[in-house]
Every structure is written in C-alpha cells, then in structure tokens.
Write a protein that binds this DNA or RNA. Structure first.
Lengths: 119, 119
DNA sequence: CAGAATCCCCTCAGATACTG
DNA sequence: CAGTATCTGAGGGGATTCTG
C-alpha cells in the first residue's frame, strides 16, 4: 500500500507545527542538547503541551533521546539529537535550499531572526 | 516571525495527504505530464475532490502547470511538473534516503509496488 | 521545573451528488 | 471527462488548570 511507505510518515510528522523548529533548536544547542525550559523559552508561543507532545513523538521516532536527572531539584530533562536526527537536519537544509531557489519572495528569510536560517 | 519562514510552509503542504504521491506520479509521466484521469486511476482511493484540491495548491505554488484543451471533447486537462517541481523530487529523494538509512524496518519499501520507490 | 489532563475550535479529507 | 458543492467525522493544536 502506498500509505505504508515511510516517506509519507516522515513528512507527516516533520510537518507538524513546531517539529522543525524544535529540531533546529536542538541542533543549535551545545552537543545538540537542550533542556525543556530552554526549548520552551526559545520557541516563543509554544505551549508546554505541544512541546511535550512533539518531543515524545521525536523520541519514539528515535530522533531525540531524553535524559532525566531526577537527583537534582528541580528535575532536569535534557533532550539530545540522535544521529538520525542530525541526518534530518540535512534534509531540512535541502528543503531550505529549494525554498530559497524557487520562492524568491522569501529571500529576506536569510536574516538572523529566523530560526530556520541557522542552517 | 518563525511561522513566516517558507521552509515550514513547504513542509506543510508537502505533508498533505496525497501531495507527495501526486508529484511522484507526475514525475513518472512522459514529459513529467499526466492527465487528471490518469492521476485519478493511478492513485487508488483518492477522490476527485481531493485530487482537484491538491492540484490547485500545487499550481498556485508553481509546482505544476495546467494545460486545458477545450477544443477536444471530452475536455482534456494535463498537469506538468515545473522546474521547481522537479527540484522537489530531489528533496523527496533526500527524505527517502534518510528513511532507508534510519528506518530499517521499512527496507522492504524498495519494492516496485510502492509509488515512492520509483525514485 | 516538567509534565499530564481537559476543553474547544478549526482544518483536512472522505462520501455523495450535481454540472458543462 | 473534469471538475464543483455540500455535509460530515477525525485529528491537530491552542488555552487553561493541576501535580510531583
């Protein structure tokens, strides 16, 4: 069946709101790592619910790993891009290249204020 | 603003159900061209409504062009991938490469029965 | 701080029926 | 053949509240 093919699935969750920005935010972090609260602050407008949902998805997809330090207080949760997650950054780069080539009206998107332009 | 960045937009409509498969079906056609009814038959399970919607989207995004031959009867409508559309095929190829590398359980997806595997 | 649980709205996409 | 129009159900995602 066509729907079983992973390419569809991949694009599907990549396209969920915030997913891309979360991946790029992790990519910018030291060791490709960020804490929950850091992500929350960096991604202005995201709610905890959505952030938690997206991170869970990415975790079950093997794109990020979670490390919880329960010994500390308050609890720390750190999220790190896996190797496959880094591979996805390449994919995103490809999409951006396409967008810059064919969507000229968005060329201004090379500015620093755009999270995606870190690529 | 983050949401204004085209990379998000691009992934968003790419991820709409059927969009990917439509692009690939056009890619397989002679001169990257297919008729409405050919697409409808090739994409088993798609409804006319959804097919028409997706094609309109792709047209306004400059990814396909439409040529209507009204002189013929019945009317013929042909859809052709543009250059930017061909560029998207490369992007899809990248996503597939990622999926094959990191989603091993879907390796069987190299079969001929999968539309995406034409890549 | 890092979440889980509810509620609510809105878009997507399927089914069906109709037209030039 | 190539659409358009309308109705409907499922799921995404935002806001808010509660907990260890």
């Amino acid at each position: 069946m066509q729907e079983t093919c992973t390419v569809n699935q991949t694009v599907r969750y990549l396209a969920r709101k915030w997913t891309l920005l979360i991946i790029l935010e992790l990519y910018k972090g030291p060791g490709y790592t960020r804490r929950f609260s850091e992500l929350k602050n960096a991604l202005e407008g995201i709610t905890q619910k959505v952030l938690a949902e997206r991170l869970r998805e990415l975790e079950t997809e093997g794109i990020v790993t979670r490390h919880v330090d329960a010994s500390a207080f308050p609890v720390r949760s750190e999220y790190t891009l896996t190797e496959s997650g880094l591979g996805l950054v390449e994919v995103i780069r490809g999409i951006k290249a396409w967008a810059l080539t064919w969507k000229l009206e968005n060329a201004e998107c090379g500015g620093q204020d755009c999270s995606v332009c870190v690529l």
